[in-house]
């Protein structure tokens, strides 16, 4: 955890197409954060960034089988970990 501060993985930094699992929500929950939780972005849920808008913002997410668009700023509150499906490659990738 010591050197993890700058390695914290946030939803808005995820490359499109890789499923991740939400670990927790950083900071005080606001209206948008609460709405995203209501739409399924709760700790433990699997979510995939599926697309980035042509101008770099917003993001398209896939969660609970639906497609939801959010701004990067809102997505940045969600701290994620590699999903178990892709964790093997993620660990291998983090080796160096």
């Amino acid at each position: 955890m010591v050197s993890a501060a700058n390695r914290v993985n946030r939803l808005h930094q995820q490359p499109p197409g890789r499923p991740v699992v939400i670990d927790h929500i950083d900071g005080v929950l606001d209206a948008t954060g609460l709405r995203l939780m209501e739409l399924g972005l709760v700790p433990g849920a699997t979510v995939t960034v599926t697309r980035v808008a042509p101008l770099g913002d917003p993001l398209e997410l896939s969660v609970l089988g639906t497609r939801v668009c959010v701004r990067k700023q809102a997505a940045s509150a969600f701290v994620v970990i590699a999903s178990s499906a892709s964790s093997a490659t993620a660990v291998a990738g983090a080796a160096p």
Binding site: A31, R35, L36, P58, T66, C69, V70, R71, A74
Partner: peptide, 10 residues
Amino acid sequence: SPTPPLVLEL
């Protein structure tokens, strides 16, 4: 008013 959050379903 606060910037409206964008939560848009496709």
